[in-house]
Design a protein around this nucleic acid. Structure first.
Lengths: 217, 217
DNA sequence: TCAATATCGGTAATAAAATATCGATATACC
DNA sequence: GGTATATCGATATTTTATTACCGATATTGA
């Protein structure tokens, strides 16, 4: 009952949270204590009401007329919501350049995810180390996930291999999959697949561009 | 008037197109000539009506009762819509691991984008070659974009440098920016910014996971 | 040739997300 | 202390996206 608010945050609002965090951290570093929804909205090119609603949905403290919301409170609340404090452990499958980019991504641990192992099928990669993470043979996915009680699997293998890897992760008890392969993955109902689909973004971009060019003519 | 349909495709539908392409290509390789909306919907775990509407929005030919849509026609229509045939030229700024991953991404050119140059500030990277693309000094961004009439800029630099790079691209006449840096970019109204925000995806994933765990308890 | 049916296209209903509006109120300034 | 105002919270409206429904029709198989 108490945390009822929590459940009412929409997916879209959730996706905006990292942007809020980013702006709030800047303000925090400038020792600004409170900030209003309109101000953040202006900085991020969002609608004022939207920001206010988002803040209201996550904030434990209320906003004050004329002053706005406490910067520190907002940061705390959002970070807790996103689990930035207690990171979940994850494994990554496919130790290619994309995996390296992800592992190198500074402050990924800050984002609530702690990658503890990497897997690959390529014997040349197995045994090597990327960013202090050992690369293991893909054979061991299910086993290791189960033993270490891993809940998140990140897939960066080529499209063709993705479904097999996905099945192995699920067999290992993984509950959420972050999929960078440009394919649809079939999973049991209770498993969440979050697709990171570059082709989809590109589709939107190309279309807009084409439109822009047409209007220019 | 004729192409009025084109303008009615929603952003969300656009994002689904690459998934359709993927499934349709599989069918094409199996020499399947027609496919129904319900069948594709089942394969992708989507709603049947949604798929039918999406197909209707992009298809030049009509679907036939009992048979469905022509696989080849759909592929042609979607690829034309997404500009997979006549790729736009793009540059990438930031030649780190993420850029390498993007450049290595097999068949990126198929997705309607053709990366012709890379930029970096690091003198050790300048002059090197990644996937047959020369890495140039960031000084030259604006100049080269303008001279080569580049319309797309891809930003993979660290957060702090992103806005500067963005400004240089805009100065060079770029019309669309694909931003992998986890920051909001300020641009003139007519410029499109497509954010590829890993933190946003992760936020959704973590939240769902937390929910799932709670329900399990 | 005719009946059964999968699928279509179109319209209606529902759900999710974004935006507008407005009265209430805490703060800042006179 | 009193007044002006920026901002809030709440509610209403609009827009976008998804899903349900239904009559029409091409194909399949008796």
């Amino acid at each position: 009952m108490k945390n009822e608010k929590r459940n009412t945050i929409t997916t879209q609002a959730l996706r905006r949270m990292p942007y809020y965090i980013q702006q709030l951290r800047i303000l925090q570093s400038e020792n600004v204590e409170t900030v209003s929804a309109p101000k953040i909205a202006e900085r991020l090119n969002l609608n004022e009401v939207q920001v206010r609603k988002d803040f209201a949905a996550v904030s434990s403290s209320k906003g004050k007329p004329k002053a706005g919301f406490s910067v520190n409170d907002l940061i705390d609340n959002i970070e807790e919501l996103l689990g930035y404090n207690n990171a979940d452990e994850a494994v990554i499958v496919g130790a290619g350049s994309l995996a390296q980019a992800i592992l190198a991504h500074e402050g990924f641990r800050k984002f609530g995810i702690n990658i503890v192992a990497a897997f690959d099928v390529d014997p040349y990669r197995i045994g090597s180390t990327i960013n202090e993470i050992k690369v293991l043979s893909s054979d061991k996915i299910s086993d290791l996930c189960r033993r270490m009680n891993i809940h998140i699997g990140i897939i960066t293998v080529p499209a063709k291999e993705a479904q097999v890897v996905c099945d192995q992760l699920v067999a290992g008890g993984v509950l959420a999959i972050w999929n960078f392969a440009p394919v649809h993955l079939s999973v049991p109902d209770h498993i969440l697949v979050q697709n990171e689909n570059l082709a989809a973004s590109l589709a939107v971009l190309s279309k807009h561009l084409k439109q822009a060019m047409k209007e220019k003519r």
